[in-house]
């Protein structure tokens, strides 16, 4: 089982000053699947994301990426191994333009970032690819705009473009549709459905209709533990899940 999963987690635990945010989580993410993590607030979804991407060190347990132990690696090394993430709170470089963001992401795997004796104009070699990616997420007209000046939904789209620029094996999306209007949600779902080809996507999502449209498997977390795991329809029908989470207003769709 472990050998087949692209991302495999065993007994993962994280404590914050006596509070156990993630408590012995086992998780296997199948290659080229879309796997959703759902659960009420405080269930440990974002903490789990931060553990998977190296932003937090586990208090216990083990994380394997394609059979390789990546437990405790720093975020930049996890990123280099092909795991890209978006942030729940939009996280951009306020003074850089949308295109500069994507260029910076495209440049990352090359050694160009170290060339302090070369001109930044060399980064224009990535401009064409950057514009393709921006067009993909619907930001073609806003390539020159500084990130600070973008509307909220556009910033989320830019987050996605940056993650895609890394051409990751595993894409971790932390609430990609949070705070979006219906139209933007639809477009983002289509986009994720399109970019998932050839990749593995793990997403934290509150919007159950988005989960239903995208996810092959769903893991429900509660109080840092795995409550249920399975295909969407099965999880949705599970008594424990209905009691814990899905019975609430969230079932009806976007909140």
């Amino acid at each position: 089982m472990t050998g087949q999963a692209v991302l495999s987690v065993r007994g993962l635990t994280r404590d914050f000053r006596g509070f156990r945010a993630v408590d012995g989580v086992d998780l296997d993410i199948a290659p080229e699947s879309v796997h959703a993590l759902v659960g009420p607030n405080g269930a440990g979804k974002t903490t789990l994301f931060n553990l998977l991407t190296g932003f937090l060190r586990p208090s216990g347990g083990r994380i394997e990426l394609a059979g390789r132990d990546v437990t405790g690696l720093p975020p930049e090394q996890v990123a280099r191994l092909g795991v890209a993430r978006s942030f729940q709170i939009t996280s951009l470089f306020p003074q850089l333009s949308a295109r500069e963001h994507v260029e910076l992401a495209l440049q990352s795997p090359s050694g160009l970032g170290w060339r302090f004796w070369r001109s930044a104009k060399l980064m224009r070699r990535y401009a064409e690819r950057a514009d393709e990616l921006l067009a993909m997420v619907g930001l073609a007209d806003l390539a020159e705009a500084p990130a600070d000046a973008l509307a909220y939904g556009r910033k989320r789209a830019l987050e996605l473009a940056i993650a895609l620029a890394l051409d990751p094996k595993v894409l971790l999306l932390d609430e990609p549709t949070a705070g979006m209007g219906l139209e933007d949600v639809d477009r983002t779902v289509e986009l994720i459905a399109w970019v998932r080809r050839g990749r593995t996507v793990v997403l934290v999502e509150h919007n159950m209709s988005v989960v239903g449209r995208l996810a092959d498997r769903v893991t429900v977390l509660q109080a840092g533990k795995v409550l249920v795991e399975g295909p969407y329809e099965q999880v949705r029908a599970d008594e424990r899940v209905i009691t814990a989470y899905l019975g609430s207003a969230d079932v009806s769709g976007s909140h």
Partner: peptide, 9 residues
């Protein structure tokens, strides 16, 4: 944090 997530040490 964003820079690290892009793979920059």
């Amino acid at each position: 944090a964003r820079a690290r997530a892009l793979g920059y040490p």
